[in-house]
Every structure is written in C-alpha cells, then in structure tokens.
C-alpha cells in the first residue's frame, strides 16, 4: 500500500484556500492575507506544491493597465483531488460525531 503523504497544517490551509475557488488564479499576497501565513512560510509551500505537480503557476497581466505582470497560482487536477480528499477527511469526524449524537 503506498504511503500517504504527510501534510502540514499550513499546507492544508493553503490547499483549502485554493480549493475554495479552484478555477481562480490567486496571487501570493492575497493568499498570504487570506490564510494568515507569512510570505516566508507561504512561498516554500507554494514551491513544494508546484514541484509535486499539485499547483499550476502562470504569469498573468493585471487588470489595471501599467502594472507589471504577477505570478498567479491555482490547483491542478491532482491538487484539487488531494485537497478534496483532505477536506473530506477533516469533515468526516465531525459527520461521525453528529451521527453518534
């Protein structure tokens, strides 16, 4: 049986945030504000996720003219599957508790 990857709470938070709007391209600063993670924690996580094929990256032109392009991120299909799996795991115990009550 393949070993399940070990995911830190910070990675879970980033996965959950990106999975909330799976088709939307997100920027580092926005993700940092939304997750509450400092850029020193966020970027190494994004780099690992991209290395593992879980995160798609793209240089995107900003909506406001005259601004330089920004690096944007969203989950790949593989990343979405992992995020969905981890979200289901998080919700499952709560569901079980409700069923027991």
């Amino acid at each position: 049986m393949p070993r399940r990857p070990n995911i830190s709470p910070q990675t879970r938070t980033v996965l959950a945030t990106l999975f909330a709007q799976p088709q939307a391209w997100r920027h580092g600063y926005d993700l940092s504000k939304e997750t509450g993670l400092k850029s020193g924690t966020l970027y190494p996580l994004l780099i690992r996720l991209a290395d593992q094929g879980l995160l798609e990256t793209e240089w995107r032109k900003p909506l406001q003219p005259g601004k330089p392009p920004r690096h944007a991120y969203r989950l790949t299909a593989q990343g979405q599957a992992l995020a969905a799996e981890r979200e289901a795991e998080t919700l499952a115990p709560a569901g079980l508790r409700e069923a027991e009550a």
């Binding site: 920027h27 600063y29 940092s32 850029s39 970027y43 780099i47 990256t57 601004k67 920004r70 690096h71």
Partner: peptide, 29 residues
C-alpha cells in the same frame, strides 16, 4: 523564477509597511 515572482508581488503591494513585511518574508523563504 520564484524570486522574480516574489519581487513582482512585492511591487504590486500598495501599502509600504505590508510590502516591507512581505519582502522580509520572501528573504527568509
């Protein structure tokens, strides 16, 4: 390429205090 991404992100932050804090985090990363 990630360094370029960090620099572009910092340049896009309007609040100078936030920009410095974000850049310091990038340096740490």
């Amino acid at each position: 390429a990630w360094g370029e991404a960090m620099a572009a992100e910092v340049a896009a932050i309007d609040n100078p205090r936030d920009a410095i804090l974000f850049a310091a985090g990038c340096l740490w990363a």
